[in-house]
Amino acid sequence: MLKAQRFTRRHLIQGAAAALAILLPSPAALWALGNASKLDLAEIILPAGLARRSSAWVRLLHELVQTTSIEALPQTTQLGPSDPALFDHPLAVMAGAGQMSDLNEDEVIQLSRFLRYGGFLFVDDTSGTLDSPFDSSFRQLCRRLFPNRPLSVLPSDHSVYRSFFLIEKPVGRLAISPYLEGISTGETTPLIYSRNDVSGALARSPDGRDAFQVLPGGDLQRREATKLGINLLVYALTSNYKKDMAHVRRLMLEGRLP
């Protein structure tokens, strides 16, 4: 059994030292284990159909560092789907509006392996329409990546909606789709798809201003899109952590979850 918690002078000194340690700057910031240990994003590129939204992803990583405890490098690495370096970056993004180039068999195998062995891919349709060429070509790719697992609507209690923020409606630059879609393997969802142009809400022009207007909600909607982006990255790292009973019970007790 545990010892009785008797408060001694030794405890007082140790406690004071611990309290002082909290007030001092954390040495962690000075001594990270190198940039290789920090989170960044792989931005998948194809010859056609994809849009480069590096500024959006860098902004998202920056917001992530500012908002959460996660150590990240605000940078992206552009990689093809068969590039071996993809496996140095467990989180990847892909955005586009037009019809994607067809992936060859090796690329499909490698991308499938990436998703099955722990990688996470967020796919963002930036077209602003529900039946874009990107949407149809992406759905075709999904059938090749996971022949037996359909791309389906993520339920409202999916962990991605509560991984950090409580999200009621997953919006981006637009709000044309009220849900996210994804492919789940077991209890995790390694691939999530949005048709609301999340990266559009985060993208910046070279002069540092927002690249696109957010409709219909303006800056409030942009804020919500940022929260969604943070949730996506936190979910990618923690998967169904927020479904653990300790969290669910507490959130329900506090009335934050129905």
Partner: peptide, 17 residues
């Protein structure tokens, strides 16, 4: 875990499965 990270992610995936 002090902060979510790739190391945490893969260890949790292993432990959960």
């Amino acid at each position: 875990c002090g902060a979510p990270s790739p190391d945490e992610k893969f260890l949790r995936l292993f432990l959960k499965q």
